Simulated scan of single mutants.
Amino acid sequence: MASNLESEIYQQPAVLQRFLDEKAEGVARLAETIRADAPRFFVIAARGTSDNAATYAKYIFSAINGIPVALAMPSLYTLYNRPPNMHGGWVIGISQSGQSPDIQAVLEEARRQNVPTLTITNAADSPLAEVADHVISLAAGEEKSVAASKTYTAELMAIATLAAYLKGEQKLVAELERVSSHAETVLQEAPAVAGIARRFYQHDQLVVVSRGFNYCTTFEIALKIKELAYIAAQAYSSADFLHGPIALLEKGFPVLAVACAGMAQDKMRELIDELRPLAVEQALITNDEALLESTSGAVRLPAGVPEWLSPIISVIPGQLLALNLAIERGFDPDNPRGLRKVTLTI
């Protein structure tokens, strides 16, 4: 019998399409409101998996909309009582449950400063939704697994949809319509992912590397592996990795590289070429044909995925890898130790 996590991983194509079908029109109206307000920046508050979604937002809103993004430091609002001045911007809270008090505190402070607020959540009746001026509901359905999967990719879809409508380019909106089919395609790579898990499961540490838009993907995959398989997975930008952490590597050290076609592609090729002489245990998630031809143990991403949307697709093999690693190591993926579905921090 499939675990809740496995079932929810496979629900993602339908969840992503449902978001577009049910929520895109409302997001388009919200984009008009934001555009009329002309914010100079966004401040985003999030924790855990949602913090990785916030990192995606940081790239997307900056690259597509030209809007700088800062990630809030909730401790300034709750522990130190030293919130910054947020006038001129919008404050966005991202939380699957919408219940974390420290994220709520950031939005409450924004309202005290008369700064517009937006919540992105899977719980439209949550405290975080109630405190916000605007809400994007993910409509992902109940997520029973402790480890987030479908709510994470739904968060990315919400962010991408808002960025596309803010930009006002029909080409970007049209690209959103193909995301669910790309997700369906990549799920067919499950046997290749299981093969990587059989190579990696005996290790107690590994590295996940990427660059650019998929920086968030490295952190989300590493988080899932830590949560489910109890492997000390470390996430790096390929650029940061070359500034010191590469010294960790020795023969047989497991490295997972996410190398999607696009502007970051050449830099990832350079890193992978540099790793080959080190005889590391390497696996790839990629749609780069040259890398697919030269590497055994690769997961093929669908061709034609735009780089800006690739994090929604490239994380799915990472979710499957974490699931398979947990199973190979004899752990229950639905009951990770020390974790609860909703974590309340102040």
Rank of each mutant, 00 (worst) to 15 (best):
G48S: 10
R82T: 15
R111F: 03
N81Q: 14
K23I: 07
A72M: 11
M73Q: 09
A140H: 08
A124G: 04
G93L: 00
Y56L: 08
E142C: 02
G88M: 12
D102L: 10
F41T: 05
T117H: 03
D37P: 01
E130S: 14
R35W: 09
Y80C: 06
G26C: 05
F41A: 12
D37W: 12
P74D: 07
D51M: 13
L138D: 02
N81H: 14
E32C: 09
E109I: 13
R111P: 06
A28C: 13
A129P: 05
A72C: 12
Y152L: 09
F42T: 01
F42I: 03
S137T: 02
A72V: 04
E155Q: 15
T119I: 01
A140G: 11
Y152A: 07
F42C: 05
A36K: 14
E25S: 14
A31T: 09
K58F: 06
G89E: 06
A110K: 02
V131S: 06
G93Y: 00
A123C: 11
I64K: 10
L79I: 12
L156G: 07
V131P: 06
R111S: 13
L76G: 06
A38N: 11
M86L: 15
P74F: 08
T78P: 10
H134E: 07
A45F: 00
E25T: 14
V43M: 10
G93P: 07
I67G: 10
F61H: 09
Y152C: 07
L128V: 01
E25I: 03
W90G: 00
Q99M: 05
N85K: 13
N114V: 02
S95G: 12
R29D: 12
S145R: 08
L30Q: 10
R35G: 00
S50T: 08
D133N: 10
Y152D: 04
N65V: 07
I94M: 02
T121P: 00
I159F: 09
G89Q: 04
S62L: 14
N114Q: 15
P83V: 13
N65I: 07
V91K: 01
Q96T: 02
Y59F: 14
H87P: 02
T151W: 03
Q113K: 13
K23V: 08
G89P: 11
G89V: 06
V91C: 10
V135F: 02
L107D: 06
V115H: 08
A53M: 01
Q99Y: 02
T117Q: 03
S62E: 14
A158C: 03
V115A: 04
V135G: 01
A45E: 00
A70F: 14
A105Q: 13
A140P: 05
V131G: 09
R82C: 11
I103R: 00
P84R: 13
V91D: 01
A140Q: 04
R47L: 12
Q96A: 10
V131E: 07
I120A: 10
P74R: 07
D125R: 09
T49W: 00
L76F: 13
T121I: 03
A123Y: 06
A110C: 12
N65C: 15
Y59L: 09
A147H: 01
A57W: 06
I94V: 09
